[in-house]
Write a protein that binds this DNA or RNA. Structure first.
Lengths: 353, 353
DNA sequence: CTGGAATGGTGAAACGATTAACTTATGGTG
DNA sequence: CACCATAAGTTAATCGTTTCACCATTCCAG
């Protein structure tokens, strides 16, 4: 391995000078810098070794994104990849790499408490959609690792980027109720730690620990009240994971225990899955059933799914910008994004029958 | 920051013992190990600092994936996220993080030659779909950084995971020709460095530097010959990037200069984009035009797109497995995957007219 | 001609962990 | 009972950079 020492010796200068040359300090003349670069190129020196540099300076040149569950699960969800896209965009232009972390690690279960994040593999993290009080998040706060939250958790003092979930959900339900629907089925994301698909009771709602789901249900209830629809008449089912299989399962449960004329989902992934199930059963959307999603993922436009738009890529950009600002000593704290209703072909006035 | 020294002092042992405890060496008794872990937990020590550990041991606990262009561009392509999913799956169970790198960096253009990969931010890399002779790949080979290639480039000596692209393309075109189509339009991925959309000439084909495109075109030509269709009668257009905008643009160019009855795309993303353009123009699939993609991305199943299936997640798993094996001193070298034709609703017998 | 910036450079002490080589108990065996 | 593996620890060198404190020129104002 070729090191700074080799470059220094060959160039006939001290190691310190080489270091200053690479850190673009004004302590070295332009001519000298050029000479050092050319010697480096000749020797095949790629620049300061990260481990050495990081050990001394405390900076490593990478930020992480912490996604719920395993990365395996997460990469299934378009809103995660879109968020990463936004983060990568900002990171890339600052020469900062993006590392993916699972909130729950998969390594040996008997291990001592360790996470690569806490051990300094990254300078800071974007935390996306992790439940309140998650131990990794607690540890990150305790260690003072720079972090920005997207969506949840809204933990003590961490800067965040989010939308008004309650309002977004309100828009969604309001649209459906304005179309005259009264028997509405809701497919909601995970409420807490367990992830099986089942009908949701009032107690479940009260006990929900996932902020996202809680807020959005609140938005649905707000809209129902405004339209004089008793909240108890809404049929709610929870889909364990954000993937099509869970969405399909949830839809089947919902259809088995209620006769909705409209389906409202907290994620486009679930809405799309529902649509597929309906198609399999010979039900047409929106004639037999209206379906509306949330997120406005690319697939929504493709299929003509009505949905609530949220600027996910921009959320990623904003989170990365705040994080980099913090790493540079800044103090930006938050950014709230707007949502809007996008009506496409999957919702229609309730059929008189 | 709490270090090993602090833990050692508090536990009343030497730093070496703490280190051995965390590296699970048998040099420390079980009881002692437990004691050390509990002291660590008490002090809030999360485990050996990555920078220090990596500096000494040379291992850092992360692998990278190098994607073409910017990560921004790449995350648009489902085959990239599926590949990452496979890699993450293997990496996660070995407690190894996954870092995303652009093949072309976005930092300051006047910088000295440096890439975080070459500077040791990761232990090894999976290189996906990068053109032959790319400088970063050359540098990785020169520095001897462990690497596994997925698809391309098939560089000197690097282990790889791939499919038989030529055969996959053959299956695709063979299907279309068997349905009686003779006027076939082809939408092909990038051929070389430039990325504008335009019709492709025979010279362009000869000059193509991207292996993927070259091989697949060869497969198309094989099939055409077997069906006694003069190769010159195929209309070929190149789509600059793997995103819907480029696919739509390519489709428009194709429709403007030829009257195909079938569209063959080297990516589902482009096939889907083509389908959308056709819909906008009031053409129905498959009645007015057959469309077939490649990859069998989730969206293909959703829309009922006929396509060539390739096991992308498994490719990721295989690549990660080979890489980890190499990091451990192994010598596994390659893995070839199978493709298969998946006929759904987007292809049909040519209409007699 | 002198004092003092400014400029360009060097020496050396950390940073936190790993690991080879060495030391000291502790049993077990002949 | 003497001897030697083995187990359990320790000491100290080392990994590649950064950066503080210092030193030597050069240059210019007074």
């Amino acid at each position: 391995m070729v090191t700074m020492k080799d470059v220094a010796r060959t160039a006939g200068v001290s190691v310190a000078t080489v270091s200053y040359a690479f850190s673009k300090s004004s302590k070295v003349s332009a001519a000298q810098r050029e000479r050092i670069y050319s010697v480096a190129a000749e020797l095949g020196y790629a620049g300061p070794n990260i481990a050495g540099s990081s050990l001394r300076s405390g900076r490593i040149g990478a930020v992480g994104v912490i996604v719920p569950d395993s990365p395996v699960q997460a990469l299934e969800d378009p809103s995660v990849t879109l968020l990463m896209k936004g983060i990568a965009e900002i990171g890339n232009s600052a020469d900062i790499a993006l590392t993916l972390f699972p909130a729950s690690r998969g390594g040996a279960p008997d291990s001592p408490p360790n996470s690569l994040v806490l051990r300094g593999l990254v300078d800071g993290v974007v935390i996306h959609n992790v439940p309140d009080g998650h131990p990794l998040v607690e540890a990150i706060i305790a260690r003072g690792i720079p972090a920005v939250v997207v969506d949840s958790p809204r933990s003590a003092g961490l800067p965040f980027v989010a939308i008004d979930d309650r309002n977004g959900a309100y828009l969604q339900m309001d649209h459906i109720l304005k179309l005259g629907h009264r028997r509405v089925g809701i497919i909601v994301d995970k409420l807490g730690l367990d992830s099986d698909c089942r009908m949701v009771t009032a107690e479940d709602v009260g006990a929900a620990t996932e902020r996202n789901a809680r807020e959005r249900l609140a938005g649905y209830f707000d809209a129902a009240r405004d339209h004089h629809l008793p909240v108890g008449e809404l049929s709610i089912v929870v889909a364990g994971n954000i993937d099509r299989a869970a969405g399909a399962e949830a839809t089947r449960i919902l259809l088995a225990s209620a006769q909705p004329t409209a389906l409202v989902a907290t994620s486009d992934v679930h809405a799309v899955a529902a649509w597929q199930v309906l198609r399999e059963r010979g039900l047409s959307v929106p004639d037999d059933m209206s379906v509306i999603g949330f997120d406005d993922a690319p697939v929504a436009e493709l299929l003509g799914l009505s949905t609530i738009h949220q600027p996910i890529v921009e959320k990623g950009r904003a989170a990365a910008t705040i994080l980099l600002d913090r790493l540079g000593g800044g103090t930006r704290t938050r950014s709230l994004m707007k949502t809007s209703l996008v009506v496409r072909g999957s919702t229609a006035r309730v059929r008189e029958s």
